[in-house]
Simulated scan of single mutants.
Amino acid sequence: QQTLLFVDEIHRFNRAQQDGFLPFVEEGIVTLVGATTENPSFELNGALLSRSQVYVLKRLDDASLDLLLDRAEAMMGKPLPLTPEARQAMLALADGDGRYLLTMSEVLFDLTDIEPLDVQALAGVLQKRAPAYDKSREEHYNLISALHKSVRGSDPDAALYWLARMLNGGEDLLYLARRIVRMAVEDIGQADPLSILVANAAKDTYDFLGSPEGELALAQAVVHLATAPKSVGVYEAFKAAKRAAHETGSLMPPAHIRNAPTKLMKSLGYGKGYQYDPDTPEGFSGADFFPDEMERRTFYKPKGEGHEEKVKVRLERWAAMRARMQADKA
């Protein structure tokens, strides 16, 4: 006869305790069934998870919740004292949680000799449930991901919705402000340089006003970022530049752009031939500022969105001038 071992809240077991299940599971001594409210990818040992089948339990839809109420009414032998509109409002209030729905129904079944409650009367009997949200768990990361991707996807309405969801859940407003600043530099960048100023101003405004007035500044920043042109040109360029810096090690700057505060340094050629770009006829010298041992590379490649459209034209003009000047020197 096989043994079924059910472990509720299995994520509360530490790594060593979870390892203790392994030999019994592998030998088939027990069939392990674990339940957890956390993401098993983060909370369970890889060895145990690889030997398991994961079933994700999703929130109940309104039809399933209504079926629970039908069963509760059948068991109690009487209908809930609710108008159809109030019954629907109660389903919405449960927010997909069947256990919470049945807890509310118990309160209503205890009421005696009353007329069916409308929505307003129901609200007076039942307290509004706080939305499911845990600032330190998976839901926190799911919602901030939804907010960030809505901004990145240029959808201000969805972005405002997810911002409101996080505010209703009690999220740290300064955490949200920091993430909004990150969106400005990561997804918008040079396409709209004003975005970083708007994001920082929203953070400072919230710092100054607090809630609820300061929340509007964050909402304004979210809308600005969502409706701004997007570019990851600087983001990608900086990553490429860091890779190049790692590859090339400690190459020195070319002599003409090294500082020469002493006679010895000048005698070694430091600063020799340096051209002060603003003093040139074109305001551009075309000099090479990379190390002598390193070929010139292009990291920043603007896509031509928003402000970057003008930047792209300017860089292309300078690149042509640099190539012409280098050819003339050769």
Rank of each mutant, 00 (worst) to 15 (best):
P84W: 15
I257D: 06
R129S: 12
P281K: 10
L93P: 08
M166I: 07
Y270G: 00
A237Y: 00
D61C: 05
Q53S: 06
H148W: 05
F6Y: 07
G77P: 03
T3F: 10
G153A: 15
S211Q: 14
V7A: 00
E309Q: 15
E215Y: 07
A241W: 12
K272R: 15
V25S: 02
V125P: 03
A219Y: 09
G96T: 11
P156T: 05
L315S: 09
K149E: 08
A63K: 10
G28K: 11
Q88L: 14
P193E: 00
G210N: 02
S52L: 10
Q326C: 01
T3Y: 13
Q190D: 08
H256Q: 11
V181G: 01
V33D: 04
Y133P: 11
L225I: 12
K266V: 07
D110V: 00
H307W: 08
E115N: 07
T112P: 01
I114W: 06
P212I: 11
E9Q: 10
S136P: 02
K263P: 00
G304Y: 10
A121F: 05
S52M: 12
Y161N: 05
R314L: 10
R258C: 04
L122C: 00
G189M: 06
G306E: 00
S231F: 00
E138R: 11
H246M: 15
R179T: 05
V222G: 03
P291D: 02
Y100D: 04
A16P: 08
K242D: 11
R296N: 04
F208T: 14
F289V: 06
P23H: 03
L216F: 11
D61S: 13
L68V: 06
D70S: 08
D292N: 07
R12V: 10
M90G: 03
Y235A: 14
V107W: 12
H140P: 04
D19F: 04
S41L: 14
L264N: 05
N39H: 09
M90H: 08
F24E: 05
G124P: 04
S52T: 12
T37K: 09
A63S: 02
P212S: 14
L176E: 13
A47G: 02
S267L: 12
T205W: 08
S267I: 02
P131M: 09
E247Y: 13
V198W: 15
H224G: 05
S154M: 02
G271V: 05
V232Y: 14
A164K: 09
M265T: 03
A72K: 14
M90S: 00
F24A: 14
P254F: 08
D97A: 08
N259Y: 11
G304W: 12
R243T: 04
E186N: 05
S154E: 07
A330I: 05
G170M: 11
P278K: 06
F13K: 06
R129T: 12
A47Q: 01
E236P: 06
T37I: 03
F299T: 07
A177T: 01
G304D: 13
F289G: 01
T280L: 15
L67C: 05
Y206S: 09
L4C: 07
I144C: 07
Y141T: 06
R165E: 01
P281Q: 13
P261W: 12
G34R: 09
H140C: 05
A237K: 00
R243Q: 15
N142E: 05
A320K: 14
G249H: 10
